[in-house]
Amino acid sequence: MPRETSRDNMLREKHGKEIDDIISRYPVRRSALLPLLYLAQREQGYVTEAAMKEIAQILKLTPPQVYETITFYTMLNLKPVGKFHIQVCKSLMCALVGSDQLVGWFHAKLGIKPGETTPDKLFTLSVVECLGACGTGPMMQINDDYYERLTEQKVDQILSDLKKTGACPLKSGPFMWPEARSAK
């Protein structure tokens, strides 16, 4: 488990109103668990032990109830990840159109294998199961954004844009594919 990094009521002090708003959507408090964990993760890039304890307190749960829930879901990080978390889809539909190659490009360009983070803590590479963008593979998700129909050139641009400005115009959405149906 990660070490303590903050005071025990940090989330409430900082996001009290948002937390109340989230809890108000559900007749049973525990339903707010995933949204609150996302909030904690947004704050520090992963869910700290302190955040888990605080959330448990807010929702009147025990810390193990929070922990058992987190460990079921792959999108909640229990350990710090790089500033940009690259998640490459490796399921069959993407694999058919070159997702293994995509992982290879990252290895060549960043020197990291799946599960590793670059020494400058900028990029973490993960391979994940289906992200629901099978018609536009190979694809990946970096933090909140999808990048689809990837080529080596696009990957180069995305990496350099992210390093320079922290954002990249190649991210996709609102999604539609094919874009417009031309004469058939």
Binding site: M93, C130, G132, G135, T136, P174, F175
Partner: peptide
């Protein structure tokens, strides 16, 4: 979440 399916995303985003 069914691999191969990506229609609902389009319906919701567009």
């Amino acid at each position: 979440s069914e691999p191969g399916t990506f229609k609902d995303r389009q319906l919701m985003e567009r």
